[in-house]
Amino acid sequence: MTPPPSRGLVGLGIGLAAAGVATAAGVAAGRVTRERTARLAVLAPAGAYAHVADRELAVVADDGVPLHVEVDDPADDAARKGAPTVVLSHGYTLSLRSWVLQRKALTRAGYRVVLWDQRSHGRSEVAASESCTIDQLGRDLHRVIEEVVPEGPLALIGHSMGGMTMMSMAEQFPEVVRERVVAAAFVATSAGGTNMMTLGFGQFVGRLLGRLGPRFLARMGTQQKLVNTARRLGRDVEDLIVDHYSFASPVAQHTVRYTGDMIMGTPLQVMADFLPSINVHDKQAALAQFHGVETLVVNGQQDLLTPPDHSEAIVRLVPGAEHVVVEDAGHIIMLEHPEVINEQLLELIDRGMRAATAHVDIERKPRVRRTVTDLSKRRRVAKARRSGRSA
């Protein structure tokens, strides 16, 4: 049946408008991509994200899911006597590769580093949908520690969903935190208690996304091959979206692609599986287990996924916690401002080791809040752009 003229014209108009928007977005994205490739490559030189672990292994979770784990050992002349093992937990739709610059810095500083891919992420096995919960991730982290770091002091570091995983483990296995953890860092994360899925659009739209997001992603997940094809055809637009939600300052094209490959390499069904648990996440009570632990809370000033108020809530619940806000920083802060994050983590672990040795009452420390500007990066970006204009 031929559609009525008016309906056909409306459909044609919508189609042309969509095509126009997509074309405009593609042109704009292409311009941004060219600048990141030509001028900003200095921010992520060749080989910056290359790394080979000293050891790889599989740790079997309590429900039988194999979890991919990597271990880096410091050189003998760099190893610190009595130092904690650092355990890094990554965020939603990322993998342990997101910590590549931190694992290098920590190992150089003399620490043993353990990283793992959370279930259904990275190289860990895809788990049953019903097991994709924050509570299960807490049990997974405990299994990794139990298997790979069965004794000795620990420093726990978690980004986004990885921070939630730390809270979940503390809630279920409080003795691990009380007896072994000397330092904890919550990076761009949240203790929950409010709607998590705002994406910078506010609570009303956030609640709508929280309800509809899992169903939409699950439906799209049945067309994963088609989605993968669309990705290849529209990489510039994909990069523009990844850049918007991940960063708040100029980064190299290699950084955007590296991040986008982690995010979009996560199957849509896996994204859908975890969203309901993230959206109702509330581990505020679990933060009581970190009382007396040297704690750092870090967030980007322009983070759209876990805005600064989420970090401020964690600080209020952990006496003595230090709060560092990084200007011109988004959600994937450890790749956007790696030198700042590396410095903050190394200082945190040093404080934790000193406090454990001197038996410092950390809960009595005054709260410290600092705003940090990555001046070194600003200078490098300005210099790169001046060089580009001269050329």
Rank of each mutant, 00 (worst) to 15 (best):
L317H: 13
T259R: 04
R231P: 11
P250Q: 11
E339V: 13
H254R: 14
D328A: 14
P267Q: 05
A285G: 08
V280S: 08
L304R: 11
M334K: 07
D261N: 09
F290Y: 09
V227L: 15
M334E: 04
L296A: 13
L317V: 06
T295S: 08
Q269V: 12
T295M: 03
Q289E: 10
N279E: 12
A313C: 06
P308I: 11
T222V: 15
A272L: 09
D239G: 09
V298S: 00
A321W: 01
H323W: 02
D328T: 15
H281A: 06
P307A: 09
D239K: 05
H281E: 05
Q269H: 09
R257D: 10
H291L: 01
H323K: 04
G210S: 07
V297E: 00
G260Q: 05
L275N: 01
S311T: 03
H310M: 13
I332W: 10
N279H: 14
G260C: 06
L287P: 02
L296V: 11
G300A: 09
T255S: 01
I333M: 14
G320C: 03
V237S: 13
H281W: 02
I241Q: 09
R219H: 08
M264E: 09
G330I: 07
V298W: 00
H244F: 12
V325D: 09
E339F: 15
G320W: 02
S311P: 02
N228F: 08
E238L: 13
E339G: 14
Q269L: 10
S249Y: 08
L304W: 02
L287V: 06
A286Y: 05
L209P: 05
L212E: 03
V340Q: 00
R232V: 15
H310E: 08
P308R: 05
D303K: 01
L275I: 08
N279Y: 08
R219I: 13
Q301P: 05
P276N: 02
H337R: 03
V280L: 01
G206E: 02
A288R: 14
V315G: 00
N299W: 14
